[in-house]
Design a protein around this nucleic acid. Structure first.
Length: 735
RNA sequence: GGACGGCUAGCUCAGUUGGUAGAGCGUUCCCUUGACGUGGGAAAGGCCACAGGUUCGACUCCUGUGUCGUCCACCA
């Protein structure tokens, strides 16, 4: 018991002088690591576990408010459960973020030395990316610590480290052996600028004005077609009409030979339900090589693919000598001119078009045929064992079905619930997942070729003459394994047995498909289990006007700036209160400031309580007045309420209720009423008030700890009680 | 085209088993009271988007409309 008030308490609360010191204290205690907690008796060896994996931030990224929000929510969950006596693990790591990182380094190289990756070669380029990632890694880790995150750094992982590489290759090989991974010549989303494939989810859409051209393939062709991409028509092999369209019915099955100025081209009239008779002329030029839907029609009707656009976004030889090498737009102008000259062009009109663009560079995506690796989501395979409700070992099942069933049967609960519907809808529309990328940074595909042979394995084949597939895997392939690759899979480690499935995955709704769904896919397939029992989706942090925070608008609020000015606790509270799962939040500096005031209030309450209880032995509970009994009853009700709200993931409510209680009940009412009693000469009233104030304060900071870990830990250390432990391992109050 | 979400005090948002509404910030007035002016006290301010329906009673449930936004699909 300290007889004197800590000197710090005589001054206003200074987060800057407190937070780093406290974080170091926590780290040194080892309690972020559940093994240490077991060793030191903080929790039982057989205690119930609570585990979450940190959604790994991009290794080359910097902390933004979205990260802060996610770290705050997860830290609340983790600290709460640790205090509840669970064996609690929060496993951190970073993501190599293949294309994002590669692009960053390429840009840096180009800006600084004017070189491209091809100038320096693959090996040298990767050396540079790795170096860059390594440096950047320390920045993001430091920033995660600044948020107060109680993650177990001893278990830190990286999606591209050695262990994760083994996991990725093991997963790939298993899928290959089961026929779920295949190499095929398919129409893929191709970004000529990034020079790589994109998955369907990486394609975004933008409304744009476009010209719809109506023209005939030839003067004697019986009808016209309409298109916004005339240049692709050089690769047409059919024209499709609706089978019920009376205008064209008679022509179905006819075959025409036309010449669009680059030689003979065979056009067959086919029927397909997908054709809308109302649009354009009701007849659709089928370009199997450069349209997903046209490709499907081509498959059904056995039509040839004529690739007229190449990977650089330029016309190929097949488009004709006069077009070869031209950019798409140039070719379009030239071909339209040709149509005009030939008097084949009937109409030009402006229409709205939904243009496919690359999510990274926002440039148009070219669908084109390419030899790539895919995950087959519709192929049945035999699941060797299963912890999945409704699925038994040995059953025939598809990846799609697995993804669907674990949410359908409630084994995975999504908060807010409405996202389950969105998830199901996504699965329904899901096509095979293109997983190969033509970039260098990432997991190189574990496939080796020698002449006509193909070898798939975890290790490179021993004998000579093998060449590894140059492509790398979609970054989400490796992050899909995250909940168990971080725990040691494919080895059957104690961690894997203890902490998997994880309790909850907390992330932004914007990566529900990219990541959450892929984790479900990988885990159900590889482990026959779920990756997590709950999914909590937070909204996006926007600026005070509801706009996305972006560098170009200049409306970015940097969490580190806010931490510096207002402290981490205030920043965390501002991201928790007034928000609800799945809904975007608007953040302003004013809001953060308000919680800085709250931190100060806690500080001043502490000063008041400490200075008025210093002369008393608080370990002995005195006789309590009825009034104080009422006060404690109210506190008990608060404990029950806060516990309930956290259990239900209502952090915003728990935080708000704590704020309200501490300020407007405890400070404004209980403390105010206590003054007369503390300064009066009734000994019973006085000691009852002292004990009660002290008890309410210790309970309040305990309840507040998950939300505002720094100030509460600091206050705890200055209270004159017999509890020497850190607040972070103090048992959660019972009501 | 389909689905989903928001629409509650000037602003940002809560409101979970239906009983005519709350918080923060802001505004106005008062208070150098011995924890705190990063404070305290008081006050103003809302036909809870609109229209129907269920009900003794609806911000809360149902139907429809409007509006803003998001996601998905896609017409070439």
């Amino acid at each position: 018991m300290s007889p004197y008030m800590d000197e710090k308490l005589t001054k206003p609360y200074d987060p800057q002088a407190t937070e780093d010191r406290i974080y170091q204290l926590w780290e040194e205690s080892g309690f972020f690591n559940p093994d240490v907690c077991v060793q030191k008796g903080v929790c039982d060896k057989d205690a119930e576990t609570f585990s979450i994996v940190l959604p790994p931030p991009n290794v080359t990224g910097t902390l933004h408010m979205g990260h802060s929000e996610m770290l705050a929510i997860q830290d609340i969950l983790v600290r709460y459960n640790r205090m509840r006596g669970k064996k609690t693990l929060w496993l951190p790591g970073t993501d190599h973020a293949a294309i994002a990182t590669q692009t960053k380094v390429e840009k840096k190289m180009y800006d600084e030395e004017g070189t491209t990756r091809h100038d320096v070669g693959r090996e040298e380029f990767l050396k540079r990316v790795n170096q860059f990632a390594k440096e950047s890694h320390d920045t993001i880790v430091h920033q995660i610590k600044k948020m107060g995150s109680s993650v177990d750094w001893s278990r830190e992982a990286f999606t591209l480290d050695e262990k994760r590489t083994i996991a990725v290759r093991t997963a790939f090989k298993k899928m290959y052996d089961d026929g779920l991974v295949y190499r095929g010549h398919r129409i893929v989303n191709w970004c000529p600028h990034c020079y790589s494939t994109l998955s369907d989810d990486e394609v975004e859409y933008k409304e744009k004005k476009a010209v719809l051209y109506t023209f005939k393939y030839a003067k004697d062709f019986p009808f016209a077609i309409a298109t916004t991409r005339p240049e692709t028509k050089l690769g047409d092999s059919a024209v499709a009409v609706n089978p019920n369209d009376e205008r064209y019915k008679a022509h179905i099955g006819e075959i025409f030979t036309v010449d669009l100025g680059h030689g003979a081209q065979t056009i067959k009239v086919i029927a397909d339900e997908a054709v809308d008779p109302e649009y354009g002329t009701g007849a659709l030029g089928v370009t199997p090589a450069h349209s997903m839907t046209d490709y499907d029609m081509a498959q059904k009707n056995d039509l040839p693919l004529i690739k007229v656009i190449d990977e650089h976004g330029k016309m190929t030889k097949e488009a004709g000598a006069q077009y070869e090498g031209l950019k798409v737009k140039e070719a379009r102008a030239k071909f339209v001119q040709w149509l005009k000259d030939e008097e084949l062009l009937l109409k030009e009109e402006e229409v709205d078009q939904n243009l496919s663009i690359c999510y990274r560079c926002a440039r148009p995506v070219e669908p084109l045929p390419s030899l790539q690796w895919f995950v087959n989501v519709n192929k049945t395979f035999t699941i060797p064992h299963s912890n999945i409700k409704g699925v038994t070992a040995g059953q025939q099942i598809t990846l799609k079905e697995l993804m669907h069933i674990v949410v359908q049967n409630g084994q995975i609960q999504i908060v807010p619930e409405r996202f389950a519907k969105i998830y199901f809808h996504w699965i329904e529309n899901l096509r095979d997942w293109c997983i190969s990328r033509q970039i260098w940074y990432g997991h190189q595909i574990p496939v080796w070729y020698r002449d006509e042979e193909t070898y798939v394995g975890v290790e490179k084949p021993k004998d000579a003459g093998w060449t590894q597939d140059p492509d790398t895997l979609d970054t989400w392939f490796s992050s899909g394994l995250w909940t168990f690759s971080t725990l040691g899979w494919p080895e059957e480690t104690a961690d894997l047995r203890t902490y998997h499935p994880t309790a909850i995955l907390e992330t932004g709704y914007d990566i529900l498909f990219f990541w959450v769904a892929r984790m479900v896919l990988m885990t159900t397939y590889l482990l026959g289990d779920i990756p997590f029992k709950n999914v909590y989706l937070h909204g996006l942090v926007r600026d005070e006007r509801g706009r996305k925070m972006s560098k170009s608008i200049g409306n970015v609020i940097d969490p580190l700036d806010m931490i510096k000015i207002y402290g981490t606790d205030a920043t965390r509270m501002s991201l928790i209160i007034g928000t609800s799962p799945g809904n975007d939040m608007k953040l302003s500096e004013e809001k953060i400031k308000a919680y800085k005031h709250f931190a100060n209030k806690i500080w001043n309450i502490t000063r008041f309580v400490v200075s008025n209880t210093e002369d008393t032995d608080l370990t002995v509970k005195p006789e309590l007045t009825d009034h104080d009994r009422e006060n404690l009853k109210e506190l008990d009700a608060l404990v029950a309420d806060i516990t309930k709200e956290i259990e239900q993931y209502h952090f915003y409510l728990a935080g708000e209720k704590l704020y309200h209680y501490v300020w407007h009940r405890f400070a404004d009412v209980v403390i105010e009423e206590s003054k007369v009693r503390l300064y009066g000469d009734n000994a019973v009233e006085r000691s009852s008030a002292q004990w009660t104030l002290f008890h309410i304060l210790t309970t309040s900071v305990t309840l507040l700890h998950p939300f505002m870990p720094f100030i509460t830990e600091e206050v705890w250390s200055m209270l004159a009680h017999d509890k020497k432990n850190l607040l972070m391992i103090e048992p959660w109050p019972r009501s």
